[in-house]
Simulated scan of single mutants.
Amino acid sequence: MAGEYLIKVKATLDQQDARKMEDELNGRFSRVANKFSSSLKKGLKRLAISGLVSGAVYSVLNDIEKMNSAIDETLDKYKDIQSRAAGHNLLPSEYWKLSRLSKIAGVQDFDALFSSFRQTLNKTNRGFNTPLNQFRGQAPDMQTFLQLLASLQAADPKTRQLGAESIFGQQGAQDINKLLSVDLSDLASKAFAGVDENKFNEAITRGMASAREQMIAEVKREYSNLQTRGQILRGGAVREQATYRMAEDVYMNELLKNYQTTAQVNQTMLTVQERTATGVNKTVSWLEKIFTQLKQTAEADRQLRSGQITQEEYDRITGSIYE
């Protein structure tokens, strides 16, 4: 009967067939691995090249932004020095030296000081009686200002303070005292060594020409944008903007409807985070305690082995460690 017969088939391979099959499988695996490795290398190479290109582009764009900032800052500095110097009827080099020397001495607002000096001396030259009567007829320029400083420096402290306050006000007198407390000649010789005033003034003049050129270009760019964007806006951009903002409003209104629920969810999440942080802190403290206990036990073992403590002392120490 069929159920009484059990036919057992034992698959066998001779050594040559087994070796052939092994070589074939190894060959297949090698080809697959090589293809995967090749594809991976190509992919990594593409990523590397892409990253290098992106990095190079970003670097160039970043450098352009830095150069644009440097141009703007430099031209703004030219305009600032020129306008402030003209406001005080000084040459750019004179204003630059006086203001920078004052800053080195600790004065933050040289312009206010020099304005007070000019106003008082102009009033003097119109015939009024002022603390600057001794300088009547002189121009309110750099040389007269330095003469005033020398005069205050030579006066006794009380006269100097009264004179400074009457010319510059109480706050201004504090700044004048900063100028009088240092050796301005020494500071000037160190700060302005090698400075050519003529070249400085020429640089400011060239800088102002460049600044005007920039402003002219900005005016032309502004006109071009107004014309171009006017045509774009007539093409429906404003309507699309309104549609977009309405969609934003709808989205925000939906969010506001669910504000309470959202706030509760966030509060719950914060509570979970707080509990998690507390649990982590407790775990860390527990681990630190175990680590300390292990270190103390190891030290007690070392002392016991070296004969520094007895078995009784060891038992007492280790017993107290884990209390």
Rank of each mutant, 00 (worst) to 15 (best):
L98F: 05
N122K: 12
I104K: 15
T120V: 04
R136M: 11
R126W: 07
T120D: 00
P140H: 06
F114Y: 11
I104D: 14
L113Q: 04
G106F: 03
R136D: 11
D141H: 07
L101C: 02
L98C: 02
S151L: 13
K123P: 00
L98H: 01
S151I: 05
R118I: 11
G106R: 06
A154Y: 09
S115F: 08
L149D: 11
T120E: 03
Q143T: 12
A150Q: 15
M142D: 14
V107K: 01
S116F: 03
P131R: 04
A150V: 13
N125M: 01
A139C: 08
N125P: 09
L148H: 10
D109R: 06
L132W: 03
M142T: 11
T120A: 05
N133R: 14
N125D: 10
S116L: 06
Q108T: 14
S102A: 12
N133F: 08
Q138A: 11
N133H: 10
N122W: 02
A139E: 13
I104A: 15
F128C: 02
T130C: 00
L148W: 14
T124E: 05
S116V: 01
N129I: 11
S151C: 09
L98E: 02
F117P: 00
G127K: 04
P140A: 13
N133G: 13
N133I: 08
R100A: 09
Q147H: 14
F117C: 02
G127A: 02
P131M: 00
R126Q: 13
F128I: 00
F117E: 01
Q153F: 12
F117R: 01
A105Y: 06
G137A: 09
G127H: 04
A112Q: 10
F110H: 06
L132K: 05
F135P: 03
Q108S: 15
L152R: 02
T120P: 04
T124K: 00
D111S: 07
I104S: 14
Q134R: 14
L149M: 12
N125H: 08
L132F: 02
N125Q: 08
F114M: 07
S116A: 15
Q108W: 09
N122T: 12
F135L: 02
L146N: 14
R100L: 11
N129L: 11
L146I: 14
P131W: 06
L113C: 00
Q153L: 12
L148P: 05
D109H: 07
D141V: 08
S99V: 10
N122H: 08
D111I: 03
Q108P: 00
Q153N: 15
N122A: 13
F114E: 05
G137D: 09
A112T: 15
A154R: 12
I104F: 13
V107N: 01
L101W: 04
L101A: 03
D111P: 06
F117Y: 07
L149N: 12
A154S: 15
P131C: 02
D141I: 10
D109M: 03
Q108K: 15
S151V: 09
N129P: 07
N129S: 15
L132Y: 00
Q147D: 15
Q153P: 11
T130V: 06
Q147T: 13
L148V: 04
S116H: 14
L121A: 06
L149S: 10
T130L: 04
